[in-house]
């Protein structure tokens, strides 16, 4: 059974086991700490703060690719499992209770935002890349606007040509009423993220319906346009998913720095109002 596991699976099992062991050891140490009539919140808190600093260092490591600070993939693994550990630690630290006071509320909310965005980001990072194989080729986010503009031009040219070649307004009217809007910018992003082909199916039905009004040359042009519409829909699909892959970091990283700031204030106030030995 173990031989059938891939390297990734083996790594997942190993890291999860280590994390569980560390949590258990920490729970035991924390119990001893409490048995010595000390406030476990100080121990939890400092370990939590240290963990958050290490987690935040991942982003700093990315800023220094020229230094030999270890592989980023190793940092990612540490980031993920240390992240889970800090969530458990946070629950210990808060005694599985809701916060009291505005500062603690802010801190609590920010920690939840950072944790949830991290977990969602992890899910997105593993689930989206395989989906991007659709359309047979990976498309760079930066190139999508250029490709889309090119397709839009081609569709417009074909629609105009149909007026000349086919002496028919059917395709040009279809372009004006439907395609111009569709080709103008990224569309149906939510549908793409939900995996719904509804919008494209409707457009393709429109294409099928139009054929009865066209001669063979018109049908040929219509098919060429349809190919480009499908290609544009594929661009939208990539755009929606690639943007999501980037945008979650715009929540996770600023929230992390806010959390660290609030944590510093929290430490200062905790010591300012503490009584006796920690």
């Amino acid at each position: 059974m173990a031989q059938q596991l891939t390297v990734t699976s083996r790594r997942r099992v190993r890291n999860s086991t280590i994390t569980i062991i560390v949590v258990l050891v920490f729970g035991w140490v924390s119990t001893l700490y409490a048995d010595a009539l000390r406030q476990h919140e100080f121990l939890d808190g400092w370990v939590l703060a240290a963990g958050m600093i290490v987690l935040a260092c991942f982003n700093i490591r990315k800023k220094f690719p020229m230094l030999d600070l270890g592989k980023a993939s190793t940092w990612t693994q540490i980031h993920i499992y240390l992240g889970f550990f800090t969530v458990i630690l946070f629950l210990f630290h808060t005694d599985f209770d809701m916060p009291i006071g505005p500062l603690n509320w802010a801190l609590w909310v920010m920690f939840v935002v950072v944790s949830l965005s991290g977990i969602i980001g992890l899910y997105l990072s593993t689930s989206i890349p395989p989906k991007l194989e659709r359309g047979s080729e990976r498309i760079l986010l930066e190139r999508i606007p250029g490709f889309r503009a090119q397709l839009a031009r081609e569709v417009e040219d074909l629609a105009m040509r149909s007026v000349v070649d086919d002496a028919s307004m059917t395709i040009s009217n279809f372009f004006t009423d439907t395609l111009h809007h569709f080709m103008g910018r990224e569309r149906n992003l939510l549908d793409h993220l939900c995996g719904s082909p509804r919008k494209l199916s409707r457009i393709r039905q429109d294409f099928a319906n139009l054929q009865r009004y066209l001669d063979s040359r018109g049908v040929e042009i219509l098919r060429e346009i349809e190919d480009r519409v499908v290609a544009k829909d594929n661009l939208d699909f990539h755009f929606a998913h690639l943007m999501v892959l980037r945008l979650w970091l715009f929540i996770h990283i600023p929230a992390t720095y806010s959390l660290i700031f609030l944590a510093c204030v929290h430490v200062a106030t905790a010591y300012a109002f503490s009584t006796g030995a920690p």
Binding site: P65, P129, R246
Partner: peptide
Amino acid sequence: TDKCVNCDDCVRACAA
């Protein structure tokens, strides 16, 4: 491509 998230960290590291 099952793992690449298009973060471009590789490109930035190369440039750096």
